[in-house]
């Protein structure tokens, strides 16, 4: 992981603090999240305090600080989904996975993220698991959806 971040940093020679966000994006693309170790590496490279980088990164929704699970679950909380009850959907997903948004399950199978709109309003309320959309979910269907993924792993 350390080497991967090192490789990314080498693509930004003489970078200043204006390169911070592109670097963080590359790091997240490469290792899936912003680990503490990677933030420290970036901080040393840009000669910028780690607290500042953490401050910037937490400002944006796009950055995560925990390792994503094998299946990354995105619950849409856009307008159309909201109208059709996505608050309840999120609650149910949290209950089913026993994690809060931004967290990963203990078995590292699922991670949960809340997004503003994934552009599938016709399918509301919608959740996406590793890019695969599940349309018009209900409190009942949620459990069977996750059960299917769990079965794959047995």
């Amino acid at each position: 992981m350390k080497i991967k971040v090192e490789e990314i940093l080498q693509q930004y020679p003489q970078a200043g603090r204006d390169s911070l966000i592109p670097i963080l994006q590359s790091v997240q693309d490469s290792i899936g999240y912003l680990s503490e170790e990677s933030v420290v590496q970036v901080s040393r490279y840009l000669k910028m305090p780690a607290s500042k980088i953490f401050g910037v990164a937490t400002f944006y929704n796009q950055f995560r600080f925990t390792q994503p699970g094998k299946y990354h679950v995105m619950v849409c909380r856009g307008t159309a989904c909201h109208v059709l009850g996505s608050a309840t959907v999120l609650e149910e997903v949290e209950k089913c996975l026993k994690v809060k948004p931004g967290q990963t399950t203990k078995d590292r199978l699922f991670s949960l993220e809340v997004v503003a709109c994934i552009g599938a309003c016709g399918l509301a309320p919608v959740i996406s698991i590793n890019g695969e959309f599940h349309a018009k979910v209900t409190t009942e269907s949620i459990h069977s959806i996750f059960e299917t993924y769990r079965q794959k792993e047995v």
Binding site: E36, V39, P49, A50, S51, K52, I53, F54, G55, T58, F59, Y60, F65
Partner: peptide, 20 residues
């Protein structure tokens, strides 16, 4: 020149915190 603390998060959920 220490920068031990910084604004963390955004909007109404902002707080002053340390790195991680």
């Amino acid at each position: 020149g220490v920068s031990a603390i910084e604004f963390v998060g955004r909007g109404s959920k902002t707080f002053i915190g340390t790195s991680f």
